[in-house]
Simulated scan of single mutants.
Amino acid sequence: MTVKLYLASASPRRKELLTQLGYDFKQFSVDADETQFADEHPITYVERLARLKAQSGVDLGYQDRPVLGSDTIVVAEGKALGKPKSEADFKAMMSMLSGSTHQVMTAIALATSQRVLSKTVITEVSFKPLSEQEIEAYWHSGEPHDKAGGYGIQGQGGRFVSQLKGSYFAVVGLPLYETDELIQAFMADQDE
Rank of each mutant, 00 (worst) to 15 (best):
T123N: 01
L97P: 09
E124F: 08
A109W: 02
G152T: 04
S131H: 14
F160V: 11
Y177A: 09
I153P: 05
L18M: 11
D33I: 06
S118T: 04
T35C: 10
T120E: 00
E40Q: 12
A32S: 14
Q20G: 03
D180G: 01
S70E: 07
D31R: 04
G99R: 11
H102P: 08
E34W: 03
E47D: 09
A32Y: 06
T120Q: 00
S141Q: 08
L176K: 10
F127H: 13
T120A: 01
Q133T: 15
E40P: 08
R14L: 02
V116C: 15
Q154K: 07
S113E: 13
Q156L: 14
V30Y: 10
M94E: 06
V74F: 03
M1Y: 04
Y138I: 11
P84K: 05
Y45L: 03
V125R: 03
T123D: 00
K119P: 00
Q27D: 06
T19Y: 02
D189W: 01
A185C: 02
Q20R: 14
E77C: 12
T72A: 03
S86K: 06
L97Q: 12
I108V: 12
V171W: 09
S95Q: 14
A50D: 01
H41W: 02
S131K: 14
L174Y: 11
G152H: 06
L49D: 01
H145F: 11
E34S: 09
G150K: 05
T2C: 01
L60K: 12
T35P: 01
G155V: 09
Y151F: 15
F186P: 00
S118P: 00
F28G: 11
A92K: 08
V30F: 10
G152V: 04
V116G: 07
V3P: 03
A76C: 13
K15S: 13
D59Y: 02
D180I: 00
E192P: 01
M1W: 04
L174K: 07
E47S: 09
R48K: 07
L182A: 05
S98V: 12
A32V: 15
L68A: 02
